[in-house]
C-alpha cells in the first residue's frame, strides 16, 4: 500500500528555494533513509512535510494515505498519522509532560471520533510506552524537554512517537548528540514500533544509526533534489567513500 507519494516538490523559505523538485514514494512497512551533505535540504523536507508555517511550497504535490497533505494544518497532519522526531526538540517551561501528552493523545482521539482516555487508561499507556525507551516515572511531571539531557530529549521524542502511534514517522537526525547506549535505546524503540502498516523515514548524516534501523531504500539528497536511490548497500558505500562520487556521477549525467 502506498503511504507517501511526493511529486516534484518545490519549497522555499525566506525567498530562497531549497527544495527543487523532489519525488519520492514510501510504501507501508518500509524504512527509507535520506542521506546527504549539510545544506542539501533534508531538514527542509521534513519541515515541509509536517507543515511548518515558515516554509512555502511553490510547486508539486504530496499525497499521504490517499489525502492531499499540503492542504492540511500541522495538527491535522499529526491526526492523520504523521510524526516528526525533531532534530532539536523544543523546551516548553511550565507545561508538564503529562499535560502535554494528555492534550496530544486526546486531541488525536477526538479527531478520530474516539472518547478521551480515562485518567487510569492514560497512566497505563504512559507506563507501557515509557518503558520502551527507559524513561523513569518522574519525567512525566517535568516540563517538556526542560533541562533534559541530549539523550533524554531524543528518547522523549521516541516516547511521544510510541504514544501517538503514527503511520509515518520522520526521524530527523535522531542520532545526533547521542552516545552509543542512547542510540541503541532509541533505535530499539523505533524497531519495536515498526509494523507492516507503518513506515519510517530516517534522515541522517551517518551510517551509524542505520546499523540499528535497517533501511529498505536509501536516497541521497543534494541541492534540493534526490540524486540517487538504491538499496541499503548504498549507505555503506557512502560511509566508505563520502558523497563526492555520487554528486559527480549525478552532475555528469546532466551533461
Amino acid at each position: 500500500m502506498n503511504m507517501l507519494k511526493i511529486e516534484n516538490l518545490h519549497a522555499k523559505i525566506g525567498g530562497k528555494e531549497i527544495l527543487k523538485g523532489i519525488s519520492l514514494e514510501v510504501n507501508a512497512g518500509e524504512v527509507h533513509a535520506i542521506m546527504g551533505p549539510n545544506g542539501s535540504g533534508k531538514s527542509t523536507l521534513s519541515n515541509v512535510l509536517v507543515g511548518h508555517p515558515e516554509y512555502e511550497v511553490t510547486d508539486g504535490s504530496v499525497c499521504f494515505k490517499g489525502r492531499d497533505l499540503l492542504t492540511l494544518s500541522p495538527e491535522e497532519r499529526s491526526h492523520e498519522g504523521l510524526f516528526l522526531s525533531f532534530q532539536y526538540p523544543v523546551e516548553i517551561p511550565g507545561v508538564s509532560m503529562t499535560n502535554f501528552m494528555r492534550a496530544a493523545v486526546n486531541a488525536r482521539r477526538k479527531a478520530l471520533g474516539q472518547e478521551p482516555l480515562s485518567a487510569a487508561g492514560f497512566l497505563k499507556l504512559v507506563k507501557e510506552k515509557r518503558e520502551l525507551v527507559s524513561l523513569d516515572a518522574r519525567f512525566m511531571s517535568r516540563s517538556v524537554n526542560e533541562g533534559f539531557s541530549g539523550g533524554e530529549k531524543k528518547r522523549n521524542e521516541i516516547f511521544q512517537m510510541a504514544m501517538l502511534e503514527p503511520s509515518l514517522s520522520i526521524l530527523d537526525e535522531t542520532d545526533s548528540g547521542l552516545d552509543i547506549d542512547a542510540l541503541r535505546i532509541v533505535a530499539e524503540g523505533v524497531n519495536r514500533l515498526k509494523s507492516a502498516e507503518t513506515s519510517v523515514i530516517v534522515i541522517t548524516h551517518y551510517q551509524r544509526l542505520l546499523d540499528y534501523i535497517k533501511p529498505d531504500v536509501v536516497h541521497v539528497l543534494y541541492d534540493g533534489r534526490i540524486i540517487r536511490t538504491d538499496g541499503p548497500e548504498l549507505a555503506l558505500e557512502l560511509e566508505k567513500r563520502g558523497y563526492d562520487w555520487v554528486i559527480r556521477e549525478f552532475e555528469d549525467s546532466l551533461q
Binding site: 500541522p74 516528526l84 523544543v90
Partner: peptide
Amino acid sequence: DERALFYMRQRGIPE
C-alpha cells in the same frame, strides 16, 4: 514562543 507552538501542533494539539 512560535517554536513551542509548532512543536505542540506537530503532536496534534490544536493551535
